[in-house]
Amino acid sequence: MSAYDAFTTVLARKEGHVLTVSLNRPAQRNAINGEVHAGLREILALAAEDADVRAIVLRGEGKAFCAGGDVGTMVGAEEGGATSPALGVLSTLDATRMIDMLLAVRQPIVCALQGFAMGLGATIALLCDVVVMAEDAVIADTHVNIGLVAGDGGAVLWPLLESFAAAKWHLMTGERVNGLDAVRLGLALKAVPAAELDDEAQRLAARLAQIAPLAVQGTKATLNRVIRDRIHLLLETGLLLEGATMVSEDHHEAATAFLGKRPAVFTGR
Rank of each mutant, 00 (worst) to 15 (best):
D50L: 04
R106A: 14
A27H: 10
A31N: 02
N145C: 14
E236K: 11
K63W: 13
V10G: 04
M1E: 10
D94K: 12
H143D: 05
V130T: 15
H37E: 15
E135Y: 06
L44K: 00
A77W: 07
V110P: 06
I109N: 03
R203G: 10
T222I: 11
T219H: 04
K220M: 12
G186T: 02
A45S: 15
A77L: 14
A165N: 06
A212Q: 15
G119S: 15
R13E: 14
L90K: 06
R29N: 14
G76T: 06
A104W: 02
H17C: 04
D5I: 00
R13Q: 13
L259E: 10
A134L: 02
A140M: 10
N24L: 05
A150E: 04
C128V: 00
I231V: 08
R54C: 09
M133H: 04
L171P: 03
N24S: 11
G16W: 06
V53E: 09
A64W: 03
V10N: 04
V265K: 05
A82R: 15
G243E: 07
E35T: 13
E135T: 07
Q210Y: 09
L208C: 09
V21G: 07
M101A: 07
I32M: 04
A47P: 07
H143Y: 08
T267S: 11
D250F: 03
V247R: 10
E242P: 05
E200Q: 07
E15P: 00
L208G: 00
L223R: 11
V149W: 01
V36D: 00
E236N: 09
G39E: 09
H252M: 12
D70R: 08
A195R: 13
A122F: 10
L58P: 12
A112P: 02
K261H: 14
V57D: 03
